[in-house]
Nucleic acid binder design. Structure first.
Lengths: 221, 221
DNA sequence: CCACCGAGTTGTCACTGTCAACATCGAATC
DNA sequence: GATTCGATGTTGACAGTGACAACTCGGTGG
């Protein structure tokens, strides 16, 4: 893929556009992604992109896909580094780590993190069907990592069986919310030193909840 | 403020613009808010808005302010409805309710909920200073509600003193994340019947964590 | 050899945010 | 009461955007 191409045809315009899109999103976020600018960067005239993407949203979705696999890989690396002979401790530490890496990735690559979620609306309208939810979730790599870790945690006995259902959404919501607050909420001005204890507090809260004997607390309503 | 004004001057253009902005945001979200469209709606020519707002971001921020107080009021109403003779139970139920109402508001008014946070970036760059964080947080009504409820919970003895610091950010992150996932994440297709148990599971997780005796679970690292 | 069709191009339209210059009106001052 | 003056609205313009339609290039299959 030459920077200044000689032939009329580009060769691999789609990939080049996505790569340029990743650059823009990393630098200035998803909203700054403009089809025309990407075409300019790649050295192709405006509208060329429309041969590969029906509209801007599809291009954003393609970038989001890349962002998601990058995020998944970053998480995998750190999860693999954790080893513990005790399966229960191992599962607990892996749950911690998957949460930490989720927030860390959001802070390290805010543009990519945001685009990974900003793209969902268009995808949903595209692939219709009621049971398509599982397919879409299957694409969400970090979510699958979380699910299997929670399964380990349940098998090890640390997470009570009756608390397992829906736990993946609870954990996901917690770390996702913290990431969002750090990125675009009122907490965005915090330094890394201020943020880290909050992340640990969040993870500790979940850990303590799962480790609590269920009869310890009376039901509320 | 006449719909079709006769005089050259509008009278209260700023308020009219914000009101129109609220309408647009409710219907089509923050990104759809266009200065020119608002001017058109209000019956004033484009650029008139720039006498009251330096740029689009300031207008969005004004709409965000309205959204935030609306959200705060919705929460207050539901919090006031909760009464329990036992202070401990009361605090726990109020914590539940403030979380529920946060997510409920996000689902009932997705546009307003999003704009309340989409506006923060510009504000931060405007009001400089290191200790300005408290001032900005003071504006965030729902956050203050949460803080005082957590104080109650700590005073009642349900929440251990050592777990109190930072708890407001943990709770906020949890419900905020769930709201975001429901709104724009892969979970946006869920029905109300599917969402509700997830909300309850989240709140129960936090409640169980706070109710757990701290020595129950060994530290991780 | 040629026709076809995928891939890139040019041209255009409606829309946006924002700047600069101008018009109008109300209110304060003389 | 006439005059100035500043806040408020208006007109015009420019650059940028997404999207459509019509055109053109050139590699590939017949």
């Amino acid at each position: 893929m030459p920077a200044t191409r000689s032939s009329y045809h580009h060769g691999d315009l789609r990939a080049a556009l996505v790569a340029a899109g990743v650059d823009v999103v990393r630098e200035r976020g998803p909203d700054a992604l403009a089809v025309r600018e990407l075409a300019r960067r790649v050295g192709v005239s405006h509208n060329a992109a429309y041969r590969h993407f029906a509209n801007r949203d599809e291009l954003v979705a393609a970038v989001a896909q890349v962002a998601l696999v990058a995020m998944t890989r970053a998480g995998e690396e750190r999860l693999d580094a954790i080893q513990d002979p005790d399966p229960r401790r191992r599962a607990r530490r892996r749950l911690h780590e998957v949460g930490r890496s989720y927030v860390d990735y959001a802070l390290a690559e805010p543009g990519l993190f945001r685009v990974a979620f900003a793209a969902y609306p268009s995808q949903t309208s595209e692939s219709a069907g009621p049971a398509a939810l599982d397919d879409e979730l299957a694409v969400a790599g970090p979510f699958l990592q979380l699910c299997s870790i929670l399964d380990e945690l349940a098998e090890s006995g640390f997470l009570a069986a009756e608390a397992r259902p829906g736990a993946e959404f609870v954990c996901w919501a917690a770390v996702h919310g913290q990431a969002m607050l750090f990125l675009e909420g009122p907490l965005q001005g915090l330094t890394d030193a201020e943020r880290r204890p909050l992340v640990e507090a969040l993870l500790r809260t979940v850990d303590r909840s799962y480790g609590a004997t269920s009869g310890d607390v009376s039901a509320l309503d």
